[in-house]
């Protein structure tokens, strides 16, 4: 299965039409890396997200888009159980990671997060040296590494940051620019060798040039990782994503609570060029609300 994808799919990605072809050419040959089955997410009694169904395939970038409050970040955070850190948060339905229910009774959230890493909206490097930021994950996970120096170099290289920081590894990560800090956070995530990288609006605090660098980086990383990105920037979704999920918020008639729902999910080209749902079309074309 690996061979099929590596030879036929990954190098072929030159335009959006290709994406459609390869996506439909391999229907359900493999188990999705992440699969949401009737997922609803609650904060205490408040239903933040209702009945979401979609799947993320290996070595693809899936973008979650939609207006503020539509629950896309909530869904993203449920993929590595970051919602566990919020008191009262609860997931119904099933989220599976390569077939394993990540909310199963025997499942350790720590193990889930080891394999499903996350990059946050605002760069959040630790107030430690650049080196220690990268080494932190492998250290806390007790990873057996032959040479931490090599691992740090590899992670920084893969995050396209090595050349900029190789002479100041012992300096504080907080001295880096915003874009560098975000690439450091990506490098930090890569260092624990996850399978999936979740990105929660990773470029919203960055300038356009830094944003482009991160997008280029995502294209590189998709060869080895499965990426799910939440973004407010529709051009960004169109540029980077293979699949796009469009969410919106629906107000409850009686309580007025707004609940996020998945409107449409499919190939990015389809979502942006010929969406099936009127709401998607309105949002994409800027006629939203």
């Amino acid at each position: 299965m690996n061979d099929i994808r590596n030879t036929s799919v990954a190098p072929e990605r030159t335009g959006s039409t290709n994406t459609i072809v390869h996506a439909s050419a391999r229907p359900s040959l493999e188990v999705p890396v992440l699969d949401c089955d009737s997922v609803s997410i609650f904060y205490d009694d408040f239903r933040a997200v209702h009945d979401v169904n979609f799947a993320c395939l290996r070595n693809e970038i899936t973008a979650l888009i939609g207006p503020s409050g539509c629950g896309k970040s909530t869904v993203l955070r449920s993929f590595n159980r970051m919602n566990d850190l919020i008191e009262g948060a609860r997931v119904e339905g099933a989220i599976t990671y390569r077939g394993e229910d990540i909310y199963g009774p025997e499942v350790d959230a720590i193990e889930v997060r080891r394999r499903i890493g996350m990059v946050f909206q605002k760069p959040n490097p630790f107030p430690k040296s650049i080196y220690d930021n990268i080494a932190y994950g492998p250290r806390v996970n007790g990873m057996k590494v032959d040479s931490m120096d090599d691992l740090v170099e590899e992670a920084l290289t893969r995050a396209a940051l090595w050349d900029e920081v190789k002479d100041k590894l012992k300096q504080s990560a907080l001295g880096l620019s915003g874009g560098q800090q975000q690439r450091l956070c990506i490098a930090r995530t890569i260092a624990v060798q996850p399978e999936v990288i979740l990105m929660d609006e990773p470029c919203s605090a960055l300038d356009p040039i830094a944003t482009l660098r991160i997008e280029d980086l995502m294209q590189e990383l998709r060869n080895d990782y499965t990426i799910v990105i939440v973004t407010h920037n529709m051009q960004q979704a169109a540029r980077v994503a293979d699949k796009t999920a469009f969410f919106t918020a629906e107000a409850n008639d009686t309580t007025g609570d707004r609940t996020g729902v998945l409107v449409e999910f499919g190939d990015t080209a389809t979502i942006f060029e010929s969406p099936h749902d009127k709401r998607t079309e309105d949002y994409i074309s800027g006629r939203f609300g």
Partner: peptide, 17 residues
Amino acid sequence: PNSLRQGSAALGATRRQ
């Protein structure tokens, strides 16, 4: 800031770590 705790948790660190 909580963002540091979240960053640490997202790398698979335990609460103690």
